[in-house]
C-alpha cells in the first residue's frame, strides 16, 4: 500500500523572485504575507494555484506569488478567471482586485462572476482611493472627500462592496482588515474552502493617498470597540469589554448595552446562511461587521456546465464529427 505524500509547502515556496515594489508601509504587504502564509495550510499543490489580477496597486500581487498568474487589464480579472476555471475546474483560482478595479471599471464583471457562482476566490483590497493613478477618489470613497480630482469634495455616494456582492448573489461574503493578520488568514482559509464564488473585502490602508481611512477598525487602541467579529452560532457581542451587542429592532440591527436591560440571550445570533440578516449586517458601520457575513451552498457554474457535458454525452454519445456534418439534408452526386 502506498500512501500519498502529504504536501509540505512553506511560506517561502510561494514567494517569487521578484522584488516587491509597493510603497513602504502599504497595507498590501500584510495581505501578501498573510496569503503566502495561509496557502501552504490549504493542502493544494502550488501548481494548481492561479492568481489573476486587473490593474492597480493591488493587481501587482500575482508577480510576487510563485504560482501561476496573470496580471491582466483593468477590471477584467473575473472574466479571465471564469474562462480558466471553466476549462480546468481542478485549479484554485484567485482574483486580486481593488475598489477601483473591481467596483468601478470592472463592476460589471464582478457582479456577473458572483451571480454565476464560478468557484473562484475574489479578494478586493479596499483603500477607498485610487493609488496607482496618484490619489483620485474611488467608488468607495466617502462623499465629500477632497482629492486631486475633487478639490471641492466628491459628490458621489460610495458603493458598499458587501451590499454589492449580496445583491449580485455571491454565495460567500466576508470582510477583514489588513492589519488583523490572523483574522485575515482565517477569511482566506474559509474562502478557499467554500465551493462557489467567494468574495472577501479587505480594509487596506494606502499610506500615501488615504492614510488612516480605516483607523477606527484597524488601530489596536480603538478597533475592538468598533469591530464586530462575527462567528456562526454566536451572539453579536462587541466592545473591548464585550459590553455591547446587537438586537433586531424595528429599523434593523440596533446597538444595545448589555447589563440591566439586555443580556446575551436577547442578542441576534449570527447565521451566515440567512441572506436577510446578511443584508442588515452589510448596511452597518457601527459596529463594523468583520468575518463571514454570508455562506450559502449553490451549484457552481463550472459544475453545471460539465454536468451538461456529461448529460449530453450520456444522451447523445460522445460527439462524432461525421454525425455532426450529416445532421442536415444531404444528397449524393456521381
Amino acid at each position: 500500500m502506498t500512501i500519498a505524500e502529504p504536501i509540505t509547502l512553506t511560506r517561502k515556496d510561494f514567494q517569487s523572485d521578484q522584488t516587491v515594489r509597493w510603497c513602504p508601509g502599504c497595507g498590501d504587504y500584510a495581505i501578501l504575507a498573510q496569503m503566502q502564509k495561509t496557502l501552504p495550510e490549504l493542502g493544494i499543490p502550488k501548481e494548481r494555484i492561479v492568481f489573476i489580477s486587473g490593474i492597480g496597486c493591488s493587481s501587482r500581487f500575482p508577480y510576487y506569488m510563485d504560482t501561476y498568474g496573470i496580471h491582466s487589464i483593468h477590471g477584467r480579472a473575473p472574466t479571465l478567471a471564469t474562462g480558466l476555471k471553466v476549462v480546468n475546474p481542478e485549479l484554485s483560482v484567485w482574483v486580486i482586485t481593488g475598489d477601483g478595479d473591481g467596483l468601478s471599471i470592472g463592476g460589471n464583471h464582478l457582479i456577473h462572476a458572483c451571480r454565476r457562482n464560478v468557484d473562484i476566490n475574489i479578494v478586493l483590497f479596499n483603500n477607498r482611493i485610487y493609488g496607482l493613478t496618484k490619489g483620485q477618489y474611488s467608488p468607495t470613497s466617502p462623499q465629500g472627500i477632497r482629492t486631486k480630482s475633487s478639490p471641492m469634495g466628491s459628490l458621489e455616494t460610495p458603493l458598499n462592496p458587501i451590499s454589492v456582492a449580496l445583491a449580485a448573489e455571491a454565495t460567500f461574503i466576508a470582510r477583514t482588515v489588513d492589519v488583523i493578520q490572523s483574522h485575515m488568514g482565517d477569511m482566506f482559509r474559509r474562502a478557499a474552502a467554500h465551493k462557489g464564488v467567494s468574495f472577501v473585502e479587505v480594509f487596506q490602508n494606502c499610506v500615501i493617498f488615504n492614510d488612516g481611512a480605516w483607523e477606527p477598525y484597524s488601530n489596536r487602541k480603538v478597533r475592538d470597540d468598533n469591530n464586530l467579529y462575527l462567528e456562526p452560532g454566536q451572539p453579536m457581542i462587541f466592545g473591548k469589554k464585550r459590553d455591547k451587542g446587537l438586537v433586531l429592532g424595528a429599523r434593523g440591527l440596533e446597538v444595545v448595552e448589555l447589563g440591566e436591560k439586555y443580556d446575551e440571550k436577547d442578542l441576534v445570533v449570527h447565521d451566515p446562511t440567512n441572506v436577510e440578516l446578511a443584508f442588515l449586517l452589510s448596511r452597518l458601520d457601527y459596529p463594523m461587521p468583520l468575518g463571514v457575513i454570508l455562506e450559502v451552498q449553490k451549484r457552481t457554474y463550472e459544475d453545471g456546465l460539465w454536468g451538461q457535458v456529461a448529460q449530453a454525452k450520456e444522451q447523445k454519445g460522445e460527439g462524432d464529427l461525421r454525425t455532426l456534418y450529416y445532421n442536415a439534408d444531404t444528397w449524393t452526386v456521381g
Partner: peptide, 28 residues
C-alpha cells in the same frame, strides 16, 4: 454540442467574452 465538450459561455458583455476566452486559452 455539449457532447463534443463544447463549453459555450454567454458572457455579460463583449469584453467579458474576450477575457474569458483568454482565460480559457491560458487553461489549455
Amino acid at each position: 454540442l455539449r457532447n463534443f465538450e463544447v463549453l459555450t459561455v454567454q458572457a455579460e458583455d463583449e469584453i467579458a467574452a474576450m477575457g474569458a476566452t483568454i482565460g480559457a486559452a491560458f487553461g489549455g
